[in-house]
Design a protein around this nucleic acid. Structure first.
Length: 226
DNA sequence: ACCCAGGTGGCCC
DNA sequence: GGGCCACATGGG
C-alpha cells in the first residue's frame, strides 16, 4: 500500500511536474477559495476571487462587514452564490471571533482541534476543512476529494474505504517521504494537486483510465470500471 | 441539449 | 451507515 502510493506520487510528479498548490496570495484567500471551489471549477472561482479583490473585500474584516447581497453579487461566477455567501460569512466570523483574523494565532492550535472547529461551521465539510488545514495553515492533513476516491477504488488500493480511512491511508503512506527538499507537508500538498490534475485529464466518469498513467496499475489489480 | 466542476447539508430509510 | 436531492454559473 505504502509502496504503491509512493510510486504513484513519483509517477505523477514525473508526468505532470510540480503543481505548486494552492494558488492564492494569502492564507485567507486560500480559505475563501476553499469554500468557493466546492463543486465548482477553479476557472469560475478565480473570477469570483478577482471580483472580491478588485473591490478590496478580500480580507477578514471587510468580508465580515459587507452586506450579504454585495458578496452574492461579487461571487456570482462561482455558482451557488446564496449558500456560499452564508458559508463565507460563517467562516469569516469564526476566524475573527476565535483568532482575531490572525493565521499565526490559529496555527498555534493542533490540527485535530482545528479540524473539529472547522467542521462545526455549517457549510465547511471534510474536504473544505482539510484544504484549509493543509494549504492555509500548513498542517499535516491530507486532502481527499472525489478524484482521490475514484483513484483509490480503481487502482484497487482499497475497495470500500470512506473519506477518513482514505485520508489515513495517504497520511500513513506519505508521512515519512522526503525527496528534493520536499517536506512532508509539501508532499501532501503536491500529491493532492497531482491527483486533481490526473482526474481532470483522465478520470472523467464515463471512460475508465484509458491512457491514464495509472492504467497499468488499474489493469494489474483487475479494475474494469467504477 | 446535455454533462461536469478541486462539496455540503438535509431528508429519508 | 448509505442514497438522493437542491444549490447555480460557465465551459466542453
Amino acid at each position: 500500500m505504502r509502496k504503491n502510493l509512493l510510486r504513484v506520487f513519483q509517477l505523477l510528479l514525473n508526468e505532470f511536474g510540480a503543481q505548486n498548490w494552492w494558488p492564492g496570495e494569502t492564507p485567507f484567500e486560500v480559505m475563501v477559495g476553499a469554500v468557493l471551489t466546492q463543486q465548482t471549477s477553479w476557472k469560475n472561482v478565480e473570477k469570483a476571487i478577482n471580483n472580491l479583490k478588485a473591490e478590496g473585500e478580500l480580507s477578514p474584516s471587510s468580508l465580515n462587514k459587507i452586506p450579504p447581497d454585495r458578496i452574492k453579487q461579487l461571487i456570482k461566477p462561482a455558482g451557488f452564490y446564496n449558500i456560499k455567501t452564508e458559508r463565507l460569512k460563517a467562516l469569516t466570523e469564526y476566524f475573527i471571533k476565535q483568532y482575531n483574523g490572525s493565521i499565526s494565532r490559529m496555527q498555534k492550535n493542533a490540527a485535530p482541534r482545528l479540524r473539529k472547529e472547522l467542521l462545526s461551521i455549517k457549510g465547511i465539510g471534510r474536504e473544505t476543512a482539510d484544504s484549509i488545514l493543509l494549504y492555509a495553515l500548513d498542517k499535516k492533513i491530507f486532502v481527499v476529494d472525489a478524484y482521490t476516491i475514484r483513484m483509490i477504488y480503481r487502482t484497487g488500493i482499497s475497495k470500500s474505504a470512506d473519506y477518513d480511512e482514505i485520508r489515513k491511508i495517504f497520511e500513513t503512506a506519505l508521512e515519512k517521504y522526503k525527496i528534493n527538499g520536499y517536506s512532508t507537508v509539501d508532499v501532501f500538498k503536491e500529491m493532492h494537486a497531482l491527483i486533481v490534475e490526473l482526474g481532470k485529464r483522465y478520470c472523467k466518469k464515463i471512460p475508465i483510465c484509458n491512457e491514464c498513467p495509472l492504467d497499468e496499475m488499474c489493469k494489474k489489480k483487475g479494475v474494469q470500471n467504477e
